[in-house]
């Protein structure tokens, strides 16, 4: 049984996230782009901004990976991250791995928000090459949903902290086949 206090805390976090999003998300977000969708997720290795350990995308083979491009200067990015933290906790055991990719010009500001938002998944810094590998990140937030076989299933331009994205994520998590990445 969940403790009432724990449940209350969770509800408050949900309410905050929903509230921030009601204010922060214009309905005009373009939500899709064909760039890189249905092809293998380009592999990369970048150092974690928290402990400098190398983070290899390929190391997450067999998991559903949510790549989230964000930056400390992007209000809608910061507003959606608490929901990503919840998803990482909720679906970790089912094989979800979220990976944050900061578009900040330096890691200092990004690191500050990693701590402020208690981000519970690895965060690395982007660079022009990595951005171009993913079709160009010319506005934020942008996220990619990668299935267990390493294929990009969706690109989201705009905020993703909604039930529709969660349903897509859960659908991919239920696909148990873990084909090796190409």
């Amino acid at each position: 049984m969940r403790e009432p206090a724990q449940s209350g805390r969770r509800n408050l976090l949900h309410a905050l996230t929903a509230g921030v999003f009601l204010c922060a998300c214009p309905s005009t977000f373009a939500r899709t782009s064909s760039i890189a969708v249905h092809s293998s997720a380009p592999d990369f290795t970048r150092p974690s901004i928290t402990n400098h350990a190398p983070v290899h995308l390929r190391a997450f083979r067999g998991k559903v990976v949510l790549l989230n491009f964000w930056a400390s200067w992007c209000g809608p990015c910061l507003a959606e991250i608490p929901q990503l933290v919840i998803w990482q906790n909720r679906y970790r055991d089912q094989g979800l791995q979220i990976l944050g990719i900061s578009m900040d010009d330096s890691s200092r500001a990004a690191l500050e928000w990693v701590h402020k938002l208690s981000i519970n998944y690895p965060v690395v810094m982007s660079d022009p090459r990595l951005s171009l590998l993913y079709g160009g990140i010319l506005g934020l937030p942008v996220s990619f949903l990668v299935d267990r076989a390493g294929v990009v299933q969706r690109r989201y331009d705009g905020s993703i902290a909604d039930s529709h994205t969660e349903q897509e994520l859960v659908r991919l998590l239920r696909e148990s086949s873990a084909k090796p990445w190409a």
Binding site: A24, T28, F29, W73, C74, G75, P76, L138, G139, G158
Partner: peptide, 11 residues
């Protein structure tokens, strides 16, 4: 700028 949606652009 164009980093973010218009109403959220900090620059």
């Amino acid at each position: 700028c164009g980093c973010c949606p218009w109403t959220h652009c900090p620059n």
